[in-house]
Each structure stands twice: as C-alpha cells, then as structure tokens.
C-alpha cells in the first residue's frame, strides 16, 4: 500500500456500528444455547483454577483452546466474514492460538496458575471474571440490548480478555501465548475506537495492563 501515512483508521472500517452489533444479535440467535455452555465452561475454569491440582493447567488450556477454535469457526468464518474480508485471516490467527494453547498448555503443561497468593494472580482472576461476567453486560448497559451481548467462549473480545487474565496469573508465563491476544486487542480496539464505541478503551487498557505486568515480571529481581 503506497502513501500509507495518508490513511486513517476510518479508511479501513468496512461497516457501520449498526451492522457490526447487529451481527452479534444474529450470531447469538444462530448459536443459542451455545452461550450457556460457554458460560458454564468459564465457571468450570474458575473452579478448576481454585481447586488447583496437577492437571488444572492442562484442563484450563484445553477449554481455552476450544473457545478459540469455536470463535474462529463459528463467529469469524461463519459470520464476521460476511462483512469483513479480513475475517478469514483473523480466523487463521485464532486457530493458531488454539494450537499454541494446546501445545504449551496441554502437551507441555506450561500453564499452571497461581490462586490468590500474589497480586498477579488476583489481577489475572479479576480480568478473567471481568471477561466472564461483566463483558456480556456491556451491550445491555450501553443500550444495545441482551441479544447483542458478547459472551466469553463464543465472542472474540471477551475470549481474548479472559485468555490474557489466565496468562497474567500463570506461574511461568509463556510470552508467545500473549502475542495473538495482544494483536487482537489492537485490531478490535482500533475497530471499536473508529466506530466511536464507548467500550473502545477496554481492550487497549487490558493489553497495556498485560504488557506492563509482563514487563514488571521480567525486570523483577530474582528472590
């Protein structure tokens, strides 16, 4: 793309806010009651996280990988692709993230989580619970109605936020697992910002929190 500096974010916005949010409405109607299963999976993640044990990292990684895979197929390819020609590329990234979670989290068991012992685990849990319980409320709170709610496990933004919450609480954070979620925060944050959505600051704020926390952990002196 030549003269790239002459382009603004609005030049890349292909749809209106009305079309974007209406897509969630049609998607939610199409997949009902998968949302209930997704919310149940989110509660199971918190329960397994709380319980701990040898396999908890593997179980949580498996559930997260399944969520990323579902979003790639059911939302990005089957729905978002109808209004955004870039959606198929996003779907590839989401499948890649599912594979990374499966490899590092299930095969190599590199995602055991801390529970409440340290500040980072409390922050991570807070971010996860925000994605699970608060994010679906944004649509009705902002006047768009329940049908346009974005729900963890089936919609991309809360799934990404929840994943960053898990990574924040990881005992041994695998930084490569944060790359695609952080890139999505930039892409979706820019989309919402350009549309003038009031929740446009949420994803960038979570991304900055994650980056800052990871940076702090990297520079912290060894005990």
């Amino acid at each position: 793309m030549s003269e790239w500096w002459t382009y603004s974010l609005s030049d890349f916005l292909l749809f209106s806010p009305r079309t974007y949010y209406r897509l969630f409405e049609l998607y939610n109607l199409a997949i009902w009651p998968a949302q209930l299963a997704a919310l149940a999976a989110g509660i199971v993640i918190v329960a397994v996280w709380r319980h701990g044990g040898r396999a908890h990292g593997r179980m949580i990684s498996g559930l997260l990988a399944g969520a990323w895979q579902w979003v790639a197929w059911a939302y990005l390819l089957e729905h978002y692709d109808t209004i955004n020609w870039a959606a198929s590329y996003f779907a590839i990234a989401f499948v890649l993230q599912a594979l990374l979670l499966a490899w590092f989290g299930i095969v190599r068991d590199q995602l055991p989580l801390a529970w409440w012992r340290e500040a980072r685990s409390r922050v991570g849990l807070g971010v996860f619970v925000f994605a699970l319980l608060i994010y679906p409320l944004l649509a009705p709170l902002l006047g768009r109605g329940w049908l346009q709610a974005e729900i963890f496990g089936v919609a991309p933004d809360p799934t990404v936020v929840a994943t960053l919450g898990i990574l924040l609480a990881a005992e041994r954070p695998t930084r490569i697992l944060a790359v695609i979620p952080l890139l999505w925060c930039a892409v979706s944050g820019a989309t919402l910002w350009t549309m003038g959505s009031r929740e446009g600051f949420v994803l960038p704020a979570i991304a900055i929190l994650t980056l800052a926390w990871m940076g702090l952990r990297r520079t912290a002196p060894a005990p």
């Binding site: 292909l14 749809f15 209106s16 079309t19 209406r22 049609l26 729905h79 109808t82 209004i83």
Partner: peptide, 12 residues
C-alpha cells in the same frame, strides 16, 4: 461504501 455492507442480514 459501508452502507451496503450488511452481510446476510435479511432485514438490512
């Protein structure tokens, strides 16, 4: 541009 990109939404 933008206005007709409504996907498969029958109403739109």
């Amino acid at each position: 541009w933008i206005t007709f990109n409504v996907g498969n939404d029958k109403v739109a």
